[in-house]
Amino acid sequence: MAGFNCKSLVLASLLGLLVLLLSGPSQAQSNQDCCLSYSKGRLPRWAIKGYTEQLSSEVCDISAIIFHTQSGLNACVNPKEAWVKRHLLWLSQKLKRMSM
């Protein structure tokens, strides 16, 4: 009887450990605004006022950069594209200059 018990305990704890490693269920919100796709066209630098980062590790599904334009648009762009990276560098330098 003790054996049965011990075995089931070991089995349960092993199962628990496995699940712990894999992590468990959670309740994710689905009412947040997220980028679902990337813009096909490029944006000129002068049109960009600022940017926000969307991380796939957070509530949204995909990683994206959101450029806020002077005209009040939010443009989802692919963070892996070269022109986006250049724009981001330029924006951060501009920000640095402004804060200095």
Binding site: S30, N31, Q32, D33, C34, C35, L36, S37, Y38, S39, K40, G41, R42, L43, P44, W46, A47, Q54, I66, L73, N74, A75, C76, V77
Partner: peptide, 21 residues
Amino acid sequence: TTDYAYETDYLSLIAQPCSKE
């Protein structure tokens, strides 16, 4: 002053975040 195809297909090329307002 831009050399980008900007105004013509401005909105169709821009992907905006899905608003779940």
